[in-house]
């Protein structure tokens, strides 16, 4: 689930995080609102993620990983559409099988939503996202918690990897860890987690930490950024209203 290349991802930071956040949500909202046969109508919407990927030169590798990871889910639901739909729909002048339309619509929808979320992730470093969330009135406490969790994920994942490797080196014939051993392995990890939490807390108090005062930078919206956001959002909504 974690991708090894993630430590080296370059996040672009030329777009205002609040803009991307709002645009992404509008986009996903619009995509999700299309009905299950709206394949053709949704095609123009793919311009947004594609344009972002090209203009911001986003990491294709990461996008590839994320899309591949979503494949099993997309396949199961997509194929279920082939099984459960048995009717014909009017497509321009022809009656075609609805199941294939539903199948391709679902796959496209899923891809677009995932691409949009990934574009948000790749264009918005976490500290900027934190600022944007704060300006959307998300409670400070949750934002700080988000930052802290994010801070330690990679460290912990590496630790988990080391634990797993250490086990596998001494039990090369096992494919997965024996449950009894697993309990103490994860248990130890958990105990170390508590110790670490304690030390992080100490480091915070030594520097006079309080939730209210913890500084999270909120970037100002320039006029251009504001116009960019409004125009894009309105474009998506207008498109949705015109097409249906």
């Amino acid at each position: 689930m974690i991708y090894p290349h993630m430590l080296n991802i370059v996040q672009r930071r030329n777009i205002h995080p609040l803009s991307t956040l709002i645009i992404t949500f509008t986009y996903i909202f619009v995509v999700a609102s299309f009905h299950s046969y709206a394949f053709i109508e949704m095609i123009p919407l793919s311009l947004y993620p594609i344009a972002m990927i090209i203009f911001c030169r986003l990491s294709i590798r990461h996008i590839k990983h994320v899309l591949i990871a979503s494949l099993p889910f997309a396949t199961v639901i997509g194929v279920s559409q082939l099984l459960f739909i048995d009717e014909h729909i009017l497509f321009f002048h022809w009656y075609i099988e609805a199941r294939w339309m539903a199948f391709s619509t679902f796959v496209l929808k899923n891809t677009l939503a995932i691409l949009a979320a990934t574009v948000l992730f790749l264009t918005t470093p976490i500290e900027q996202l934190a600022g944007a969330l704060l300006s959307l009135r998300i409670p400070r406490f949750l934002v700080i918690q988000l930052l802290l969790t994010h801070r330690y994920i990679f460290l912990f994942l590496e630790e988990a990897k080391r634990l797993r490797e250490a086990y596998m080196l001494r039990a090369p014939r096992h494919r997965a860890i024996k449950l009894s051993v697993w309990g103490s392995l994860v248990g130890h990890l958990l105990l170390r987690t508590f110790d670490r939490a304690e030390r992080v807390y100490e480091a915070m108090t030594l520097r006079g930490f309080s939730i209210q005062h913890m500084h999270i930078k909120i970037k100002r919206w320039t006029t251009e950024e504001m116009i960019y956001t409004y125009v894009t959002v309105i474009l998506f909504i207008v498109y949705r209203l015109v097409v249906i």
Binding site: L148, H150, R151, A203, R207
Partner: peptide
């Protein structure tokens, strides 16, 4: 790693100062 918990180096060095207002 226990001491550096902010998203960037700058924020971390500024942490105590900002807490001090």
């Amino acid at each position: 790693d226990d001491q550096l918990f902010m998203p960037t180096v700058y924020d971390d060095v500024a942490f105590a100062l900002r807490n001090d207002g």
